[in-house]
């Protein structure tokens, strides 16, 4: 559906280099990375707001997009229905079609009672939902959402994802960027960006399977201190160590070697104090970043 062929892009500095990527129809793609990692630029490149410095982007014929930017761009003085109708007509729907479609979409997100409320007076979560349905009044093949869950509470976040899945079920391809790593689980494929580089593009399950490290958690009774943590980070074969509440999480290549080496430092620790746990997406991201030559910003 969308194909990037040897695409490079520079802004103030070179961002993406020699990207060869394919986006297929009817999948959900998650675009993940911190602020300034290049997520938004990448999305803008895909929909043609920016043009590649080199290479080309091929799109299937008559591909219709819907796009919601991070700040949504709602007309705050217009009411909810007017926002939808206005977009419907921009996209060339007749007044009648436009109204019918708007009513249908309002029902999807249960915003009918707010149809006459100015968009500016909606809650943060409602605004996000309105922005998303407004981008699909013309039934696009591909919907691109730039951080649709940014800054909203957990309940609204869940509702927005329910809406995204519903749109996907109607046969729409979704590209969605996020900073929240747990949202990766909802995607068919994930693209990790860091400091303007694409680190990987793969299905989440594949990332889990191919994760080359082991994750250990130290039992919470053996409270370690920050100085221990820093010492652990310096050890050979340790990729990362950090506190998560009362747990200490350690990323390493060889758990046995680390345990043996650390026992010499802390004689009160036994092998059984460590348990091996499954990696979370945070650990996967950290490992990809370190291998990609990036740093954590510290």
């Amino acid at each position: 559906m969308i194909q990037l062929k040897n695409v490079s892009f520079s802004f103030d500095k070179p961002l993406f280099q020699q990207l060869n990527l394919t986006f297929s129809a009817k999948r959900i793609y998650g675009i993940v990375g911190a602020d300034g990692s290049g997520k938004s630029t990448f999305l803008r490149l895909l929909i043609g707001i920016y043009r590649p410095t080199e290479g080309k982007i091929e799109r299937s014929d008559q591909l219709l997009y819907g796009f919601v930017s991070e700040n949504m761009g709602l007309y705050e003085e217009m009411n909810v229905m007017e926002n939808l109708l206005f977009f419907g007509q921009l996209y060339g729907l007749s007044k009648e079609e436009s109204r019918k479609r708007s009513e249908e979409l309002l029902a999807w997100v249960k915003l009918e009672p707010f149809a006459t409320r100015p968009a500016g007076k909606l809650s943060g979560g409602m605004k996000r939902k309105l922005a998303v349905i407004r981008a699909i009044v013309h039934q696009p093949h591909c919907l691109i959402l730039d951080e649709p869950t940014y800054g909203v509470d957990p309940v609204a976040r869940q509702e927005i994802w329910a809406l995204i899945k519903k749109i996907h079920q109607q046969g729409t391809t979704i590209l969605v960027s996020t900073q929240y790593l747990n949202e990766i689980a909802y995607c068919d494929e994930v693209l990790f960006f860091h400091q303007g580089k694409l680190l990987t593009k793969a299905p989440p399950a594949e990332l889990m399977e191919q994760f080359p490290y082991r994750v250990l958690s130290l039992s919470e009774e053996k409270r370690l201190q920050l100085k221990d943590l820093k010492q652990l980070r310096q050890m050979e074969g340790v990729l990362d160590a950090y506190f998560r509440g009362t747990e200490l999480i350690l990323l390493c290549e060889d758990p046995q070697a680390v345990k043996r080496a650390y026992e010499k430092e802390r004689t009160d620790l036994q092998a059984s104090d460590w348990i091996e746990i499954e990696p979370s997406y945070e650990e996967i991201f950290v490992s990809l970043m370190k291998r990609g030559g990036g740093n954590l910003g510290d």
């Binding site: 911190a34 920050l226 991201f285």
Partner: peptide, 21 residues
């Protein structure tokens, strides 16, 4: 820290653990 990204939050939390200690 709402609005801060993952890495800023990580650093911030190390300060918090230090204070708590």
């Amino acid at each position: 820290t709402s609005g801060a990204d993952l890495f800023t939050r990580r650093l911030f939390w190390e300060h918090l653990y230090q204070l708590a200690e």
